[in-house]
Amino acid sequence: MHSRWIRILKVLGAVFLALAVLDLFCAWYYNPTSYLRDPDRATDLIRQPEAFTSRATEGFASMRMDAQGYNNAAVPDEDIFVLMMGSSHTEALNVPQDQNASAQLQALLSEAGYPGAVYNIGISSHTFARNAANLPRALDKFQPTGYVVVETADVLMFTAAVHAARDDGMELLPETDSPLPAWLTNRPLAATLYRQWGNLTSEEEEQIDTSYIPPDILHRYQQALTELFLQMRTEADAAGVELIFYYHPHLALTGDGGAETMTQRQCLGAFSAACQEAGITFLDLSDIFLQAYEAGFTLPHGFVNTSPGTGHLNADGHAMIARALFKTIAEKEAAK
């Protein structure tokens, strides 16, 4: 009886030791840190302030979030010159902190002698529409002095989402994407296993064919975008800043060794036209990406531990965006 208990204890001890080793491994492999609600709602969510985060599931990077829960080396003491809003691409947890677009833009601007900081408030799942809805609160909270840059990886949105953004009627993102208790979501092993479980049991979403959009629907879409952009422009003007939207398409490799952008051309046209109508600078990175591919087979998305050209922006993609934004801002500043 006694020896049986000892054996059970031994087995339990071995399992606990294995779990501890795995937890340590996951602290490096996938350690997302949980979300909190942003009390000022500049973004729906923030990460745990000062939390360490790491991931090797897509790219290899680890970093500490700043005191406000965003991916920056620190909350700047000086004025914010450029406020970067965007999704997980802008949040950039897949690349080292000094290689994301915001940090690289900061370096370029500082080198050129521009005062003020670039501050990144990109958060995963914050689509263009969501950032548009949050814009007035973000302006209020961070009070940028120069520019607000809003990223989009997609120029095709549901018209209803555009209207919801305009009316600030978007449903808030849930604080945590896991029903596990909060203390468990901060355990790297539990978070990783939960992510694996979610992926394993998730069902593929039905794909809607968007290769062609009828003119009347496209017209309504462009109208909705224009209304939203005009409203955003008014908010930006009131805060004394200029808006820059940029679009970074994924590249698809072609059979002849070339590359093309995966873009819904009609929607890109509508998005671009709406920006023009609202007087907002729109930066389409398609040509820059294609030129970089032709010059040196550089792909802006994808990591060596996933597959080429897919997923999030890599360090090369961030560098291209930073350079394009710097050029745009420098031109605007020179024109002032």
Binding site: V15, A18, Y30
Partner: peptide, 26 residues
């Protein structure tokens, strides 16, 4: 060897690594 300390440890560790690292796409 399940039942021994190190056997169970190695088995649990390997099982954990498989679950953590497995590809979950189709």
């Amino acid at each position: 060897r399940l039942g021994s300390f190190w056997g169970t440890f190695a088995f649990a560790l390997l099982a954990g690594f498989v679950l953590v690292l497995m590809y979950t796409g189709d």
